[in-house]
Simulated assay, not measured.
Amino acid sequence: MGKDYYKILGISKDANDDDIKKAYKKMALKYHPDKNKAAGAEEKFKEIAEAYDVLSDKEKRKLYDMVGEEGLKNGAGTPGGPDGMPNGSGFSYVYTGDPRATFEQFFGASNPFEVLFGMGGLGGHDDMMDIDGSNGFPGGMFRQTQCGGNGFRTQSFTNGGTSGVNRRRPPEQDPPVEHDLYVTLEELLKGTTKRMKITRKVISPDGKSYRQEDKILSVNIKPGWKAGTKITFQREGDQKMNSIPADIVFIIRDKPHPLFKREGADIKYTAKISLREALCGTSIKVPTLLGTKVDLKLTDIVNPKTTRRLSGQGLPYPKEPNRRGDLIIGFDIKFPENLSESTKQLLWSNLL
């Protein structure tokens, strides 16, 4: 069934953008692992970030509403997907598992409490935070109540900056990291899954140092995908302080084939025949992508521009995987290097 992102954020399926933002603010602040030490809070925090990442994006939300989480992550919106889905992009959604980056991007800081109030952290049993105003945090009014040795101290702030709040610039995302992914025509005939190992830099649990991490990304390649199709894994690049990891993008490339050349959904094969066969006719065996051979009889004169077609022996059409292109046969006519005088005379006499 997959995850119910609406249920995770506690909203209905007809929620608007403001409802989604308000729900994320409320849930993210409640389950932030630096504040909420309960078992399962960190996993809940990650689910909330993933749900917001999908529902706050119109295209992702539209696709999710049609095919659910499993369809979204299995590339159902890629070429060959149901009508009404975005086609041709090669998009397959993968959440990076970096909810802190989503949190920081939303609030403009990894710790909005510290930025606004100069607090040392999100936790502590002596701190209480009330969020007032329909627009929530940031954008509404906030009241910080602290219990100290001299009693209660209350400060109110608005998002207008009149209280001297030190505003930070929201983090920027690093440019996409692109990799060419070469695929054979046989793999494009039926579709395949490529397991790509990446090594990236991640922030250590102490939040101050870095470590290397290996990760396997599964690239689901659909039948007939065109060269240039992009598959994006969001925010799987190196993690850096105060920046959003880059997207990892794999770009489909055609791997050169010893027999065939791709032309859209069609493939082209060049048969070598002699001049005598071109003029007098012959029968040839044409290889196919399935490894079989098809008999092709040539009865008419074949010239260098002659082509023949074997219908349905090409690659699947990306948007119609049950329909295939053609196998186009061209000809490389081998001319003799020399002719005897008697052969020349014979040809002249027959031509005349």
Rank of each mutant, 00 (worst) to 15 (best):
Y52F: 15
L346K: 14
I131V: 15
A227I: 07
Y210R: 02
A278H: 09
P316I: 09
H125E: 14
V177N: 03
G291F: 08
S204I: 02
P336S: 07
P258Q: 03
A101D: 13
S274D: 01
V302L: 10
Y93R: 06
S311E: 14
P175L: 15
F142Q: 15
N150G: 09
E236M: 12
E50W: 07
H179P: 01
R235V: 02
K201H: 05
Y64D: 02
D4F: 04
L290S: 15
G118H: 07
F250L: 01
L275Y: 03
L310D: 01
K194Y: 11
G80N: 00
R308K: 15
I203R: 03
K44W: 06
F137T: 00
Q173W: 05
I251H: 02
S204T: 08
G161N: 04
G151S: 02
E213P: 00
T102H: 09
P33H: 10
K73N: 13
D57W: 07
M85A: 13
S209L: 02
F113G: 08
R235L: 00
K44R: 15
P205K: 07
G80S: 04
S340M: 04
P336Q: 00
P176M: 03
R61M: 12
I273Y: 05
L279I: 10
D247N: 12
G68L: 06
K215L: 11
G75I: 04
L9D: 09
S163I: 10
T199E: 07
G124C: 04
P223K: 12
D206Q: 02
G71H: 03
A39P: 10
K73M: 13
T343L: 07
K305A: 14
P176I: 13
E186R: 09
F331L: 06
G160Y: 12
D98N: 14
K60N: 11
E186W: 04
P99C: 08
G124T: 05
N166K: 15
K194L: 01
E320F: 11
